[in-house]
Design a protein around this nucleic acid. Structure first.
Lengths: 273, 273
DNA sequence: ACCAGTTCTTCTCATCATGAGTTTTTCTCG
DNA sequence: CGAGAAAAACTCATGATGAGAAGAACTGGT
């Protein structure tokens, strides 16, 4: 099967053309995970402080090499999502319910000084995650507020490599998908109230919503939430009616969508990665 | 810099940990392109008949290895979009205007019998593309109607590998993005009429639209299209008012979106790739 | 027991978007 | 010049939306 190497320059026109693996320049494939959660109305994402060169000491997304084959480091990752969960599990405890979704792959030639590296980024949403375990191979890991990153936040958190770009893409993806999918429930435990759900939207969109209209629209979207018939233990700390408890419905696509009204859909970049 | 190979199993926690490239199992990165166009109201995509084993003779997406480094086959691809355009250019002439967007990356262990292959899929939209050049390294290339693929079409076109899945993802992505972005203009030449635009929507969504309401909604979405002030040469073949010519506006996000009304948003799969 | 304050839920209403159909304008062809 | 065709504008009933008000159910303090 391994026959002619790279003799004809057209012969690599598809990925099963014959070749000798070691005739190719070495490339690496990694996964980076943008793990997002919401705690007390504040959207957070997980960053680790790099313990290895280069960029040692800078904050970065948790990530690691995809294990292509079984080896001394452990068994191969059967698929990319498995690799994403594995590298995240090395940094923090995984929640029982989570939403994992591929964001995109970044492979510019100058991303890494040493070799050609392709990074597959994943977005992971989960209800209030525990604090990361310290130690292990990483110097430090922390849940960082979204707003501390990006535009003019403390330079302390300026992420390594092109991770600022990846994070910006993830945030924009999450914001957009709240409009037309039931993604918001991924930030919540199995049982939640309409107010809990609204607070997710307010946190991610960073804007207050009209509670009464939100309530109406959620119940109008078929399959978004399902009434359990039960009520929560208590209302607010200072009294208040006990809210109904809902669970996520079967639908992922919302009809009609919950649009963030008109203005600013900023950051809608052209999609060439 | 190259120091300790894979001694500690935590040490590959991020992609710049020290390593010896050849200590890793060889992996390959390819790009596959779902090139879409519309001809006479019929949505088409480009398939090539495989000239190499395995699956020789089956139809597949045009694709090829990403060139990680400069080599005998040619210069390295600076970034993934460059690789996508290069492999497509090997099969057909590239249009002057196009929309290129990353779809996702597929990396299941059993995708390829020979080695671990990660395929980055791209979606390319362009106005009526020319017929592919025959010959070169591919046995055959053809523009195939979407409807000939997928569910119960002629088995002749059953695509190789997991390309049916990639194509299905691309079609669903295109259908969805027509709702809330100005993507449809990518199928059209620089100057077009509202009717041209409506025919794109009808072709992609495979359903007739109410012409008058469509017209109203397009003009109501700020920044979608821009009036040139000019009129087209003639109306229909059998007479008719000369339509206004528009060009694409600056906006990519549509407010309000053009929803395909209520029912069927079928094929909304969970996003784990 | 009652009341004030709080929270969830439902209701009203003016406004805007939508689907369906009709009419007007402008063109070609015979 | 008139019939037919296509684009564009209009009408109207219905449904969704934003803003606010009102009702219901609860807590804690008097």
């Amino acid at each position: 099967m391994v026959d002619d190497g790279m003799r004809r320059d057209e012969d690599e026109s598809d990925f099963l053309a014959a070749y000798d693996p070691h005739a190719f320049a070495p490339v690496a494939v990694t996964v980076d995970v943008v793990a997002m959660t919401i705690r007390a109305g504040e959207p957070l994402l997980l960053l680790v402080r790099r313990g290895a060169r280069p960029q040692r000491g800078r904050w970065a997304l948790p990530g690691g090499f995809v294990r292509a084959e079984d080896g001394p480091a452990g068994p191969a990752d059967p698929d990319l999502p498995d690799a994403a969960l594995r590298v995240l599990a090395e940094k923090t405890a995984l929640p029982t319910t989570l939403h994992l979704e591929q964001l995109g792959t970044y492979g510019a030639r100058d991303r890494d000084p040493r070799m050609r590296v392709f990074s597959v980024a994943y977005m992971l949403l989960a209800p209030d995650l525990p604090d990361p375990e310290q130690g292990r191979d990483i110097a430090e890991a922390a849940w960082v507020p979204w707003r501390a990153l990006g535009h003019g936040g403390p330079a302390e958190y300026e992420p390594a490599f092109d991770h600022a770009r990846v994070i910006a893409d993830a945030v924009e993806r999450a914001r957009a998908k709240l409009e037309y999918t039931s993604l918001a429930t991924a930030f919540l435990p199995p049982l939640f109230t309409i107010t809990d759900l609204r607070e997710v939207y307010e946190a991610v969109w960073d804007r207050p919503l009209h509670a009464a209209n939100f309530h109406r629209k959620i119940l109008a979207a078929p399959g978004f939430v399902e009434d359990t018939g039960d009520l929560a233990e208590r209302g607010g700390p200072g009294g208040g009616r006990r809210p109904r408890l809902y669970r996520a419905g079967g639908t992922t696509a919302l009809h009609p969508p919950l649009l963030r009204s008109a203005h600013d859909t900023r950051g809608d970049s052209d999609d060439r990665r």
